[in-house]
Design a protein around this nucleic acid. Structure first.
Length: 396
RNA sequence: CGGGGCGUGGUGUAACGGUAGCAUACAUGCUUUGGGAGCAUGCAGUUCGGGUUCAAAUCCCGGCGCCCCGACCA
């Protein structure tokens, strides 16, 4: 009987995948404490536990980029509308989903604030930064000796999507966009393919998502690219999700923005360019590929906490001996660079078990008076839910 | 942006045009503590703006927001 009740309670929180995959996805995000609805339509409040995943992704990719000679820089959020007009295909692709800044001041009228001070030339909030970055690149590139340029920026962008879904498609999202400039077509081709390979390896090695590399069809490719390479990840509902893209821009933008240089024969040449990006959407892919009906499942390499330790005690005496043991294990984990959370809040252990299960912490260690007595601990693995008694000396 | 549905404490829900109730969460206290504990007390609500009416959560109009379907998704 008691099983029936707990079953019911759990189901009331997270819809099963079989019942409604889409609702399940939303439930997992809510119960995992990743996002909150924002007062602005289609925008995300990314909560600390969700943002921690993004920070892990950032730190891993950032290291990888830098090892390939890429440097970080930052370009403006606002883009003059005239910049966007310069590349015909680019305009076509992005114009219809741009947020536009037209005023620079507010005036109070009847207790309301009315935009005032109309701008001569409106700005667009970047939907992507090719135009503003390449305008700058045109000033940086004079000689073949200036190349290649390998720059990345971590930032937010806005695309006025009409129908949004948490992580997967939002009006504002976080991403990184790499923008490279090369002397030759071969150099740019090589970079575009190298970066999609970086994304593929990242997805597989760190997110444990199997990703298929491919080339986008004509209508699907990036507006202004010669071709777009993509990694598509397979989700539990059988659908593929674009998890990262790398674009060969050819000379399309360099010609529109005069990114040109003198080559080794003193001839003017237009540069060959690429751009590539991964966004917070990949967190959606992460959620949809691993999580189950109990909630989030995080791969250890991107989990904020790889281990959660739940001390269990009844009285002060037990508490002292349990925490003594917790302190020892804490040191061992630190020595192995394993991230952990010690849930020492007052309260019964049951609710804590469920909470960390919902939040997808890969491994749970339970330490109570019985474990102190037996010189062992209880280890529970999130994915299989398997419970093991592990002797202290075998723990790590 | 088109079609449909829905807006009530933080969350989930109930109330014929006539006392806004329940559950949960939260707070405090006591008892508990190895898989969602119990009792007591407390805090907290009708999306916004108009209208009809003696009286509106309830009826009408409009705004805003959310969900679903479609179009769109570079």
């Amino acid at each position: 009987m008691s099983n029936d009740i707990s079953e019911k309670t759990i189901n009331s929180k997270i819809t099963t995948r079989a019942e409604d995959f889409s609702q399940w996805y939303l439930d997992v995000i809510r119960e995992g404490d990743l996002l909150e609805q924002s007062p602005v339509r289609g925008c995300m409040v990314i909560k600390p536990y969700g943002y921690a995943i993004w920070e892990r992704i950032q730190s891993i990719l950032d290291k990888k980029f830098k090892s390939l000679g890429v440097q970080n820089a930052y370009f403006p959020l606002l883009i003059p509308v005239s910049f966007l007009e310069k590349e015909a295909k680019h305009v076509e692709g992005f114009a219809k989903e741009c947020a536009v800044v037209t005023h620079h001041r507010l005036e109070e009228k009847d207790g309301k604030l009315i935009p005032a001070g109309e701008l001569d030339e409106p700005f667009v909030i970047r939907p992507t930064s090719e135009t503003i970055i390449y305008d700058t690149y045109s000033k940086w590139v004079h000689s073949y000796r200036d190349l290649p340029i390998l720059i990345n920026q971590w930032c937010n962008v806005m695309r006025w999507e009409l129908r949004t879904r948490p992580f997967l498609r939002t009006v504002e999202f976080l991403w990184q966009e790499g923008h490279t400039v090369h002397e030759t077509k071969e150099g740019a081709d090589k970079n575009a393919l190298e970066m999609i390979e970086v994304y593929k390896n990242f997805a597989e090695e760190y997110l444990a998502i199997s990703a298929v590399k491919g080339i986008k069809t004509e209508p699907e490719k990036f507006a202004g690219a010669d071709y777009t390479t993509t990694i598509e990840a397979m989700m539990q509902d059988g659908k593929a999700l674009q998890a990262g893209t790398s674009h060969m821009l050819g000379q399309n933008f360099s010609k529109s923005f005069e990114v040109a240089f003198s080559d080794r024969n003193q001839q003017k040449q237009y540069a060959w360019q690429t751009s590539w990006g991964v966004s917070t959407r990949i967190i959606g892919a992460l959620i949809m590929s691993h999580s189950d009906d109990k909630g989030l499942v995080l791969p250890p390499k991107v989990a904020q906490f790889q281990v959660v330790i739940i001390p269990i005690w009844g009285n002060d005496e037990e508490k002292a001996s349990v925490f003594d043991k917790v302190a020892k294990i804490k040191k061992e984990l630190e020595a192995e660079n394993i991230t952990y959370k010690i849930d020492d809040r007052d309260g019964r252990p049951g609710p804590k078990f469920f909470e960390w299960e919902r939040k997808g912490v890969p491994l749970r260690i339970e330490i109570g008076p019985k474990d102190v007595a037996k010189n062992s601990v209880v280890v529970v693995e999130r994915l299989q839910g398997k419970k093991d008694f592990v002797a202290d000396e075998n723990l790590i």
